[in-house]
């Protein structure tokens, strides 16, 4: 059974009658997992006796990489 601790000021809750906390942080509950794709192509030939030569390409593309904390509530520069 899950029991929940009372929400005290230790968790950032604001006591009754006090000014609310206006500086907030959040973690996206639907956080997208980082993903990366690797692909490669290679051709090899025995160009002379006991001499192998290989030419190849390796590629990697990654998306949704975890980045630094982003401050969302800044005054837009055009204002």
């Amino acid at each position: 059974m899950v029991t929940r601790q009372p929400l005290t000021s230790a968790f950032g809750a604001v006591p009754l009658g006090q000014k609310p906390n206006t500086s907030v942080s959040f973690f996206n509950p639907n956080q997208v997992a980082p993903i990366s794709y690797q692909y490669n192509l290679g051709i090899q030939r025995e160009v002379a006796r006991d001499l192998l030569v290989e030419v190849g390409y390796i590629g990697n593309v990654s998306h949704h990489l975890t980045a630094n904390d982003l401050s969302l509530n800044q005054v837009p520069p055009q204002l």
Partner: peptide, 12 residues
């Protein structure tokens, strides 16, 4: 301040 912790917005 509103801070988004560890946003997954990077690419490489």
């Amino acid at each position: 301040n509103v801070t988004w912790i560890n946003p997954s917005i990077g690419s490489s």
